[in-house]
Design a protein around this nucleic acid. Structure first.
Lengths: 195, 195
DNA sequence: AGAAAAATTGACGCCTCGTCATTTTCCTCT
DNA sequence: AGAGGAAAATGACGAGGCGTCAATTTTTCT
């Protein structure tokens, strides 16, 4: 598909994409995603307005790319932690902890969503959800978890994770949130009927 | 504050507001919230463009008004169900069931969020969250629930409710979702440490 | 080097934005 | 009832963003 040639052209293209993403990060954080325009982003760049559209179709696509970047940055750690888990407690706690710590470390950069209480899931974020579900299914298969409904459980974990992440951004301690979420789900799973 | 005089002026004002909201519902559903413009909404109305701004500051404010409307439509039922609950199971199940049924009944009207996987909480929605938290605190006070961290539990319930609501919109049976969420939280709460 | 391919540029026409002076509608008071 | 005034609706306007595209520059290939 892609030829990763180290040609000059290929390099500049990757660089320009990064330049735009970087400018967007800064512009979105400074004036908010809603107010920002494609022109604002490109103006924070040495590129011309038309060039933007060689890289992204719209402001929304840039935002999704940024979310994708974040999702790709955290997913390997989450997957690794879950695969290595030998107890339910470990499976849940390591995942929650990694996620909350990650969110906290980026709370400045993501000031975007904070102001307007809004959330938008990009493809890579959704892929992360699917990955959690797969890992749950595998964990059920290897006997770590009882045979519960993996899809609903995955959704529930995601819901708890994202909602508590808000609390973490608002000041709740990462350890407290992790402990709470882990205990809640650990206890909950043991009470769930088999699928 | 407001004098609800049945004068012609007041009536027309309320009607116009409804006309705009109704047009917005239809326009957002048809072309999506992101693509829609204030002009698209006002064009679906007999009013002139400038008139829009006598009622709302922006497209976002209209969206929030629609969300507020939905939140106000469901909140009394939720609160009532929770106050009347005499068991933990009842508290959780009645709330989840009412919420999922409500979401399902509106899945057509809310096609907006579906397409772009996005969520935006309006003031009344946030007030609903606060209400849940209050009800939990009251339930703890009257001994229905153990003394857990009400804020974190409320967030968790909200997270599970919203995420499973997506599954309900996607085809999961309301009873199944309700049963799952109730069992999960019922079991989870019993495993929670005291606050 | 010369030609072809790829990428950049910025000006252009179209559209939306939010405002505001003007006009229309409604209410009040004598 | 009707004059006067307040409230609301109207639509034209300047400012500015949108996405496109023909022209230009840069890179690659032979």
């Amino acid at each position: 598909m892609e030829e990763p040639k180290a040609s000059r052209r290929y390099l500049t293209k990757a660089q320009n994409r990064e330049v735009i993403l970087s400018a967007a990060r800064s512009v979105f954080a400074q004036m908010g995603f809603a107010k920002a325009t494609v022109r604002d982003v490109i103006r924070a760049t040495p590129l011309a307005s038309g060039t933007f559209y060689n890289y992204f179709k719209s402001k929304e696509e840039v935002y999704q790319a940024l979310r994708d970047e974040a999702a790709l940055a955290i997913r390997p750690a989450l997957r690794q932690a879950r695969l290595a888990a030998e107890t339910q407690e470990e499976f849940l706690a390591s995942g929650f902890h990694a996620f909350f710590a990650f969110v906290l470390s980026r709370r400045e950069a993501d000031a975007v969503a904070e102001a307007s209480h809004f959330r938008m899931d990009s493809p890579q974020v959704l892929a992360g959800f699917a990955e959690l579900r797969e890992d749950l299914e595998k964990a059920i298969a290897r006997g770590l978890f009882p045979p519960v409904h993996a899809g609903l459980l995955a959704s529930s974990i995601v819901g708890v994770a994202f909602e508590l992440a808000q609390q973490v951004k608002a000041g709740t301690d990462v350890e407290d949130a992790t402990g709470f979420a882990t205990a809640l789900l650990l206890g909950g799973i043991s009470a769930l009927p088999p699928a």
